[in-house]
Design a binder for these strands. Sequence first.
DNA 1: AATTTATACAACCGCATCCGT
DNA 2: CACGGATGCGGTTGTATAAAT
Length: 321
Amino acid sequence: MGRIPCCEKDNVKRGQWTPEEDNKLSSYIAQHGTRNWRLIPKNAGLQRCGKSCRLRWTNYLRPDLKREQFTDVEEHTIVKLHSVVGNRWSLIAAQLPGRTDNDVKNYWNTKLKKRLSGMGIDPVTHKPFSHLMAEIATTLAPPQVAHLAEAALGCFKDEMLHLLTKKRIDFQLQQSGPGSTTTTYIKNDENEDTIEKIKFNLSGAVQEPEMVPSSKPWDTNGTISANFAGSCSAFPASGSGFHYGPSSFGNNGAASPWNQSMCTGSTCTAGEQQGRLHDTAEDDNGEESERGKGIRNGSSLFNADCVLWDLQSDDLMNPIV
DNA sequence: AATTTATACAACCGCATCCGT
DNA sequence: CACGGATGCGGTTGTATAAAT
């Protein structure tokens, strides 16, 4: 017994909407409102599924939607809220007037996530990657760590090869200094050597607990500590200070060649996020169980020590319920 | 100029939840 | 309380456009 489709698949148009269709839908909704999406396409003379109409309206045609670029404040809000509620796009969008969950989701996936990765911060946990490595190293027994590192490096081998091949000439030009006209080429099998060296060094680093910072790498202002910054290749080693906030978000959040693979490879499932939220909420009131009810009172969540930004209830446009 | 690659965002899919009967 | 349809939500895919090669 299969699931009943939301609409008949036959005689239903799919794909991009035409201006004529937009007009029909907009004028129908202006007259009759948005009750009963299943009937709307039929009554409006559209060969579309009701679901498709609802999406088109909520994500594109609604008159209160903002079409301009996200502002710094909006970016800030998205990152702050994401560190608390995870991929709950509708909750985040509710704090951003004129933005839809789809807008927020797309903006996160195409820009913010990559920018965080480029800054050496895991966009799922909002912790520095090196901190996560440290956690793994201190949690697992050495043989497990070695196997995990081996597996992780195997995953990144292709990206490494790609990176090394693509960048090698630029790199060699840099090494030979400005004004130099000589170009040194690397033999193909040296890629393998390089990878082996990197693997060796990383394995060593992971197995040396004294190299791992034991305290939180950031202070209460969300600033990465100088010691930690020095041990994390993604952060500047100088004491110039690193702020995990909008001020560091300029458009020069230049993506490292790693960004794409890191972004696409480590998305947290909705289940994981919901599980985390559920656990937290349960501590507070002991009885929440259903999806979507995990966040009753934001105040306790805002104090979670995994977030790098302090988020106050006052920051919110709308209460999270 | 042609081709490839990257980016942005619209749209779809399937599951979860809500809600009326 | 159970059931079924409607709606909401998040993940994923498709496509148009821009940028790089």
